[in-house]
Design a protein around this nucleic acid. Sequence first.
DNA 1: CCGTCTAGTGGAAGCGCTCCCATGTGTTCC
DNA 2: GGAACACATGGGAGCGCTTCCACTAGACGG
Lengths: 366, 366
Amino acid sequence: MPRMSKSSPEDPDGGQANGPVNGSVEPPGRGGGTPTLDEVARVAGVSRATASRAINGGNRVSPAAQAKVDAAVASLGYIPNPAARSLVTRRTDSVALVVPEPDELVFSDPFFLNTLRSVNRVLATRDLQLVLLLAQPGEEERRMLRYLGRSHIDGAIVVSHHRSDQLADHLPALGLPCVFVGRPWTSADQVAYVDTDNLGGGRAATELLVERGCRRIANIAGPTDMAAGFDRLAGWRAAMREAGLEDDLVELGDFTEAGGAAAAAALLERCPDLDGLVVASDLMAAGAMGVLTGAGLRVPEDVAVVGYDDLGVAARTTPPLTTVRNPIGAMAEQAARMLLEQIDDPHAPRGIRVIFPPAVVRRDSA
Amino acid sequence: MPRMSKSSPEDPDGGQANGPVNGSVEPPGRGGGTPTLDEVARVAGVSRATASRAINGGNRVSPAAQAKVDAAVASLGYIPNPAARSLVTRRTDSVALVVPEPDELVFSDPFFLNTLRSVNRVLATRDLQLVLLLAQPGEEERRMLRYLGRSHIDGAIVVSHHRSDQLADHLPALGLPCVFVGRPWTSADQVAYVDTDNLGGGRAATELLVERGCRRIANIAGPTDMAAGFDRLAGWRAAMREAGLEDDLVELGDFTEAGGAAAAAALLERCPDLDGLVVASDLMAAGAMGVLTGAGLRVPEDVAVVGYDDLGVAARTTPPLTTVRNPIGAMAEQAARMLLEQIDDPHAPRGIRVIFPPAVVRRDSA
DNA sequence: CCGTCTAGTGGAAGCGCTCCCATGTGTTCC
DNA sequence: GGAACACATGGGAGCGCTTCCACTAGACGG
């Protein structure tokens, strides 16, 4: 029974509207549509079932049949229809990169690009597609959750998660495989995540200054609704207390250069003779250093500065910034791999976490 | 080595929804799995056909039926299965953002992020998903083309297209709606694209220096395998000739800060007394200015500098950079809207192009 | 020499959806 | 009052694919 793929009675343009237009070859006997599994099977002289098996890894297929199917696929230029496949397998071969975006910060950060790159690299090895989901809190976020809730996607990687969004609670509840980059605020023990030891990093940065002999060490913190900002500040606090120093010289920044500058100015006002500065990001540190030198202070002679991230900016400031490395590429890759594992094995444990150690990178600012 | 810990070794509610076998196990009608259109129809007391119509815009559906279906959808939390829908409609409701990536440059550019943002914003208004396709030339690119060739995607936006890739020839040949951001090298009259007038921009930048009285104006060009780099250089050339000046003081950069610095050094070697510098990107201009001031030259007193892009860097250099604005956000948005039009109407004209005028932004460097 | 395997195969049953078409119902017009 | 026309509706045929299941050979041991 012939498919009536073409020219149904009242198809005005003969069906050439969508779909790859005639363009190239058309070996098979049938109408000019894109080849289907049926055609492959016919050309190969096997059943559709066998053709399907051959195409999907060749389980329980004789070498002879496999060869015939391979040849047919090649000659027809056959590519399986993903929708049809997805309909029955219930997989979509695509994963989402979820980026809650309450502000525009994410985007100015080289951090995001590194993530994208690394995730994509891992996914490419498995022929998975990356769907980007940017959503602001509120309506957009809700729509995104609806989207994720249905079988559009096999899994999700969440980056730049904020305290306000409820991704960490909702995603696992959907039964959707997911991995967070950066410790989630809630449900942290039910969700897989990878992170750096931001607390240890904040502590290490501070200890460096303490050992250098600094006594009045201030801190420019990141937004405390992001785990990274929160933990780095906590690390600073811990190190300060251990060194017997006051831990009240803190200003909040927003991870931007301007924010860092503003915070530095405020700090300088509060404590004109500060001699050390721990900053939660290199970009903010760059802004802060501008203010310091503008105030006639030398870095590191008068004020030693330590940044955080080491994603490029740090090497370009004057003086080059001593900083704590944030291995974002490795983290994202790790996250992608963990997601793959979850997708492959739905019974795999859910709460795995991987924490990368901090690494101080010494340059000239401290 | 990252350390790893599993905090919840066993999976409380394993993946129950993974086999297509479920259909037979699960009595239809009771809310076991995800609701289907059948269930909606049953709950609403109408046929599946009517339910489908009601859900898809309510054409030829009585208000009463519409209301009943709406209620059923709400109460069941029904979301159409995209695969099933796509199988019959031959649409996928997702578009690709194609990024050929011969090098890592694209990523360090704020340009890319702006694009992403804008495209996403437009797509969101129509509930379309953004699939990110990053591919290096060669095997990866071929795989990408195969992917695009099939009905995975309704359309594509191509950014950062290089001379070497053959996207501009292949994509339209696939019959796939597509829009380029940045003039394609080939098939430029068969492909829709949006661009800025880079030639005009290069010319304007140069004229600014000429009017300022500069006579020995050098140029740091971008990669000439990208239209933007090529055109900006051509604009400089045209303006130089018109002013009766030599147009041979050119060095090629790679759109990075380091590349700009290297080019500036070479230029300085060739012509120690140059008094004007037109640079194809702000990042390169920043690098170049570093070299200039390092050589004891004042900007703009000794050498006036004009950059290109104005995507943030320009305002942060010392001195702030006079530059030519590259309205990348507007361009990307425009591209997305054009793509939507092509998708909506397959018979729409293909070769539309939209060119944004250049705009000089005066700061302190010239 | 006959069960009993096992590997390979094809028939057929859907996956959840859209849309064509035939079939009611209520309106309008001559 | 019947023809002519809306308009709304449900039945049903697929979209292209995977996979269950029944079936046929040959292989092998008893």
